[in-house]
């Protein structure tokens, strides 16, 4: 449904999108995961025809983004990061307006608006001005506005920014329902748990480049399935601890990493008793201990050396 090949977008000398390539199948919910400034929104901007690409190509539903922007726009809906609604109009008037500029009208539009208001649980607030809504209500209406013309592909650009946990849960459930109905969705976020919870496949993006693409299991397997136990002891005792750890059951390797010893082991919990015994025998206090299980965050840290929520 969506094909992106070596997409490039520059702002002056800065390459905001630097040769990104990925594909999204029909009905798939694809997550673009990356920190702020990684190039997620710019990628959405190019794919939705709002920004001209400086290189590469992209097509949606067979329509080239640069060559046939009108064809692309007929297929897509975009839910931007901002609450792109008229705050001084009520919820119903907002949806009627967005429907009309997409060429809808008459009873069909009225029915569609009522259905969407019910879908996003705003039916009772249809005549209420948007400026009086809570953050979560605004986000839901923002989503409804992106769906008003019944698009085949939906771009969701960080739709949960700035809302509380309860509203986020409600919104994520709604998005999950849309995906279950077969809508093709590209979902950008810097919240790891959202990508893990919702997306069929995830593309990890950093500094304009796609550093990894696949489903959750594929991605995690890229960094192996071992736990890592990191322990801090005086540096003159590293050699002794390394010798001891190599004898413990299940330990694959021991190495030094940023002043700490990192023990790679199939089950991190299994090395804790012998480790405590060794520390007691050596008369050392436990200064710092960390058990890291393989997940998307460790993958991301492994790939970029930076945290996701920067």
């Amino acid at each position: 449904m969506i094909i992106v090949e070596n997409l490039v977008k520059r702002y002056g000398s800065h390459r905001a999108v630097d040769g990104i390539t990925f594909e999204v199948a029909k009905g798939e919910l694809f997550g673009l995961l990356g920190p702020n400034g990684a190039g997620k929104t710019t990628t959405i901007g190019v794919l939705s025809t709002l920004l001209p690409a400086d290189g590469g190509r992209a097509s949606i539903g067979g329509h080239d983004v640069a060559g046939d922007p009108g064809g692309v726009r007929r297929l897509i809906g975009v839910v931007p990061q901002e609450i792109a609604l008229y705050q001084d109009l009520n919820a119903r008037d907002n949806l009627l307006f967005w429907g009309r500029i997409h060429g809808l009208g008459g009873k069909a539009l009225g029915t569609r608006v009522e259905r969407l208001l019910e879908l996003v649980a705003l039916g009772e607030h249809a005549r209420q001005k948007v400026e009086t809504f809570s953050g979560g209500m605004k986000r839901r209406l923002n989503l409804a506005a992106g769906l008003i013309h019944n698009p085949e592909v939906l771009f969701l650009d960080e739709p949960t920014v700035g809302i509380d946990a309860q509203a986020r849960t409600k919104l994520l459930a709604l998005i999950g329902d849309l995906a279950a109905d077969g809508l093709t969705i590209i979902y950008t976020t810097h919240y790891l748990e959202e990508a893990e919870q919702l997306c069929h496949r995830i593309g990890v993006i950093d500094q304009g480049r796609m550093v990894a693409v696949g489903d959750k299991e594929d991605l995690i397997s890229q960094i192996g399935d071992e736990d890592r136990v990191r322990v801090q002891v005086p540096s003159e005792r590293h050699r002794a601890l390394t010798s001891a750890a190599e004898t413990w059951p299940g330990v694959d390797s021991v190495s030094e990493r940023r002043g700490k010893l990192e023990i790679r082991v199939a089950d991190g919990g299994a090395v804790l008793p012998p480790l405590q015994a060794w520390l007691a025998a050596e008369g050392l206090d436990l200064a710092q201990l960390e058990v890291i299980r393989p997940n998307l965050e460790t993958l991301y840290l492994n790939l970029t050396g930076r945290g996701l929520r920067e």
């Binding site: 709002l50 726009r73 809906g77 975009v78 931007p80 792109a84």
Partner: peptide, 13 residues
């Protein structure tokens, strides 16, 4: 600034 202009540009206008 509100993003409504961008949204209009996404419509067939």
């Amino acid at each position: 600034a509100a993003g409504t202009l961008q949204r209009q540009l996404l419509a067939p206008l």
